[in-house]
Amino acid sequence: MHHFYELFQFVILSYFFSLLLKTRAQLFTVYVGLIVLPLFLLSRYLINPSLFFEYNLFETYLTTMPLIIYSSMHLYNNLGEKSDFYYSNLGLLFYLFTSTFIFLFYRLLVVFEIEDYINDLMININITLQYIKFAFFFYQWKLIYFNKDERN
């Protein structure tokens, strides 16, 4: 299931950033990523269907890293001026950074077969991170909703 989750997250957020980013080079990167990455992943599973049934770190890495790059691009674009979706971008960047490591470390624990002790902890940390992300989103929503003419 997580294959779909990751791909879905990637496509939706790529689309989101394709609306935010401005320069041609940045938009080009986003569009190319949006087309090439899903095709690449799909072809991987077509060639070797067994991959589909195991946890795949390469996929996690490939689907989150571009988002982190887009997010940094958006931060860079709006340096020193008012930025659209500034807080949600920060929240997103924070979540992408931390969750990627959570997933990777979780995988490490699974390999070392000690996940039973720490499993709950990892899940709790992930949930907390999600809450923090949504706190950022909520703050952004509040800003947009209450200052319609002055987006932050």
């Binding site: 770190l57 390469f58 996690t60 890495y61 890293m65 982190i68 790059i69 940094s72 931060l75 860079y76 950074f97 990627t100 490591f101 990777l104 470390f105 995988r107 490490l108 390999v111 070392f112």
Partner: peptide
Amino acid sequence: NEIIQVVFFILLAFISMFLVLIMF
């Protein structure tokens, strides 16, 4: 093999995020 793979990806993630930060 699996351990090496996981460690490799963790390292890769660290390095690439660090690179993104530096470039930013």
